[in-house]
Design a protein around this nucleic acid. Structure first.
Lengths: 183, 183
DNA sequence: ACAGCCATGTAACTCGTTACATGATTAC
DNA sequence: GTAATCATGTAACGAGTTACATGGCTGT
């Protein structure tokens, strides 16, 4: 492999390392349930095209045909995933935060609008947190050192801590806005 | 305007609301200095094409020609930006976090590799924080309620708090990894 | 029977990037 | 003079999305 694939390819390949061979549809669900918290939730059509590419590169193997075809890593796929983890550059996280972007432009709208947006964001954060707590619970029991879900559990804890802190920040911002408004 | 433009268009339009008319080159620098912390740092070529589009829609006005042409909001541009802030859906933040993605796959590499990655990430976070602290200092003095940089200052504080918390989480993860390894 | 989900696939489009190309201005 | 930075622009590409289309399976 002379050139790296896009990161999302490796992310999907990585999801295949947990458990049994799965269908593309199931892989999409797994991505929606886990990957979306710290990477992306790829469109269904992208799951199809990415798996086609991974198959062309012999990094995954199909089993069965037609409806219910499952996919699993090949030995080459695992080796390539390990190589990528070892050799490729990691890169800094990218955050696309529409709420922060709109807060930046708060001067253009009524203060109440901005405050309402932050309150709505608090609701969304609470919902997101519940979803991630569900994921975290599903990992419990096999999350100790050396166990299957150790690393996924660490990532989930990371996400939960992030969401909790985000809630704290937004509450604090709301207070500062309200305090400034009544001056 | 029957259809929303991409969010990045509004982001760039929004950056034009602060201060005097600027060139596209300066707009790119402004984006690199501020927008990148919570949205994206668009490529130079995208700044050109986005401003072309904004100009086609009469949302920005050019002044001068050739080298040094500056851009500023039109009245229509400001109205459209306000409309977008009021009417469009906000959407949940998207985080693309290569470090978390690799931590998920920690089982595939030597533990020392993962720990080194987290230490490198701590360094990167410290550097990012210094850069954002510079930005924050530049806003001080006009960041009170009702002042020009009030909202940008709130966003910068948000970012600083986020980075600080991220540092704490990563330190904690490192300790958990090291503790688990010596069992 | 019918609704809803499961499941698979294609086509068109666009956002955004990288690579390429050019030349003016400034600092040393 | 020459290197670095300022500044402007085009072309090709690719990742990822939305929209479209089809049909099997399952529960009521």
């Amino acid at each position: 492999m002379s050139q790296d694939l896009p990161v999302t390819s490796y992310a999907l390949l990585g999801l295949l390392t947990f458990g049994e061979p799965i269908t593309r549809y199931e892989l999409k669900q797994r991505a929606d349930a886990t990957l979306r918290f710290y990477w992306v939730a790829p469109a269904m059509s992208q799951v199809y095209s990415e798996l086609d590419r991974l198959h062309r590169h012999r990094l995954v193997r199909r089993a069965g045909q037609g409806r219910g075809t499952t996919y699993e890593l090949t030995r080459k796929g695992r080796a390539e995933l390990e190589r990528w983890l070892e050799e490729s550059e990691v890169g800094f996280p990218v955050l696309k935060h529409p709420v922060a972007l709109r807060l930046l432009l708060g001067a253009l709208v009524q203060p109440e609008r901005t405050e309402q947006m932050l309150r709505d964001h608090l609701d969304a954060l609470a919902a997101e947190r519940i979803a991630l707590e569900d994921v975290r619970r599903g990992l419990a029991g096999a999350d100790g050192p050396g166990e299957t879900y150790r690393y996924p559990a660490l990532v989930a804890d990371w996400g939960l801590s992030y969401l909790g802190h985000e809630q704290d920040i937004v509450k604090d911002l709301l207070e500062r806005l309200e305090a400034g408004r009544s001056e």
